[in-house]
Each structure stands twice: as C-alpha cells, then as structure tokens.
Design a protein around this nucleic acid. Structure first.
Length: 278
DNA sequence: GTCGATGTTATCAA
DNA sequence: TTTGATAACATCGA
C-alpha cells in the first residue's frame, strides 16, 4: 500500500511523537526484518535520541544523536504506529522500540518490508530524484533513455523515487497519457503535463493522508481518505469521471494497470531523445 | 478447499 | 546493459 503520500503521512504523524525522545528498549521477534541480518540493532539503538525523521522515496529515515541513521521500508503491508506500552501487541509485530511509556511498533504481515541500518555516511544514491522537486528537463532526460512503457518506467525507483502502482495510474490519467506509451516516444509537452500531473496528484493525496485499500494507517492508526478520490485505480469497468467511458484494466509488468481508453489514447508521439539534446 | 489478486522490490535469465 | 518474469509472504474474496 505505502507509496510516497502514505509514507509522507506516516512521517508527518510520527515526527511529533518521536523527535527528541530517548530509546530505552528494542525488541525484534524476527531477526530477518533487520538488514544486515547479523546487525545488533538493539545495541545500536539503546540510549540514543531520535533527532530526525524524514522521507526519501518510500523510505522512512531515522536520524540518531550519534550521527547514525537507519530506514524502515513498509513493503506492501507494513504499518508503523506509536502506541502505549500496555496496548495489545498485534500479530506480525516484528519490531518494538520503547520510548518511555510509548512504543513504536512495526507490523508487517507479508514481510516485504524491513529495517535497514545505514550507518553514518550511506545515502540514497541508488534512488532516483524526488518527484515533488522534479524539473521537466530532468524527467524528460531520464525518460528519453528507456524504451519501456511509461507505466513501467515510472514504477522504477531508480528513475523517480516514491511512485507506486496507484499513483502512476492516477498521474498518467491526469496527464492523458496511455500507460503503454513508450517512455522515449513522449513529446516534451507530454512530459510537461506528466510532471505537473505527478505533483498535483501526490500533493492532493498527501492532503488527504494517503490511500487506504486494506492495511495502511498512519502513526496514529488513522486510515487515509484519498482512495475515495481515485479516478482510475481500482475502478475497472466503472465510468470514467471525465467522459463516462468504462475504465479498462490491463496487466503490465505483472501489475494491474487502470486507464480510460478515451482520455488516454495511444497515439503517435514524438521522439523525446530529440527534444533532450541527446 | 482452491485460485487469483493485493500497495514492493531483489534477483535471475534472456 | 536492459528489461521482463518470478519469487518472497499472508490474507481475503470469489
């Protein structure tokens, strides 16, 4: 579930509850949730103060007072909540960080997520740029280098960091671009609309505290509200909100892909490469 | 009971 | 090199 807007919402709701707090205890039931898997997380965290909490792509990055950092990735079904230490522990709770009477709890039934130790210097150099700060020429340049369908390209975290299945579909709809359009065949005008569409879509989703399909909640346990405003995702065969044409679903790269066949026509496009001095 | 689908991504083979 | 398929896992609904 968790893509950029959900992860940002978790960070926003987590911050006031964690910043400046001292970690007094760490329990992890499964050592596989921590990477590297032989790392002594409890030893590294006990006694430390949480000095920073930020988002990078879909990662939640924790900064500590000794200069070390680690990040948590929620995978498909991860939840990160702050609860009283006497609250019942849910099934599939893999990590509990105790900060006084409150505990940070990581629950992840499908176990696609994890806790990743970064140390003092590692940064997300393996990830693409943040979509909310992305410039048109930057996006065009990156898209011009791949022939893949635009849907698959945008899901690639090394191309742009933070988009997932829902927000790629929603952004492509908002930009009027067919998900199968080859990335390097978009016109510069297409990319301009796409860049705007991505930002508008993500900002609206953050304002509505993300989309809850099944598992997602923020740090306070609250569900998001943006799923009610989806224009294409999960709306197969329902009328397009713009033109009433039934929304289509196809499978692309193993992922469900939703679009309006009328608003997102497959058409002849330019060669982005020529527009990018490359 | 079985099958297929679910928001992610590391890994493997073509 | 690039990219498409697959696997990792648990749960839910048809």
């Amino acid at each position: 579930m968790p893509e950029l807007p959900e992860v940002q919402t978790v960070v926003n709701t987590l911050s006031p509850r964690l910043l400046g707090r001292t970690i007094c205890g760490v329990d992890h039931a499964r050592r596989e949730v921590v990477r590297p898997c032989d790392f002594n997380l409890a030893g590294a965290l006990r006694g430390r103060v949480v000095t920073g909490l930020t988002r990078r792509g879909k990662r939640i990055v924790f900064a500590l007072d000794d200069g070390n950092r680690f990040y948590i990735h929620l995978g498909m079904s991860g939840r990160l909540t702050v609860e009283r230490d006497d609250a019942p522990v849910q099934p599939h709770t893999h990590l509990i960080v105790t900060l006084g009477p409150q505990q940070l709890r990581f629950v992840d039934p499908r176990r696609f997520g994890g806790v990743f130790w970064m140390g003092k210097d590692s940064d997300g150099a393996d990830m693409g740029p943040e979509p909310l700060g992305l410039r048109v020429h930057q996006l065009a340049e990156r898209l011009s280098k791949t022939t893949r369908a635009i849907k698959n390209a945008l899901l690639d975290q090394t191309l742009v960091a933070g988009l997932g299945n829902i927000y790629v579909d929603e952004s492509l709809f908002a930009a009027g671009i067919h998900p199968l359009a080859p990335a390097d065949k978009l016109s510069l005008e297409d990319v301009r609309r796409l860049n705007r569409a991505i930002k508008v879509t993500l900002r609206r989703a953050i304002r509505h505290r993300g989309s809850t399909l099944r598992d997602y909640v923020d740090a306070d346990g609250e569900a998001g509200g943006f799923q009610l405003l989806h224009r294409v995702y999960g709306r197969e065969s329902q009328p397009c909100r713009a033109c009433q044409t039934p929304i289509q679903r196809i499978v692309l790269g193993g992922r469900s892909t939703h679009f309006c066949p009328k608003c997102q026509k497959e058409k002849k496009r330019g060669l982005l490469r020529f527009a990018c001095r490359g």
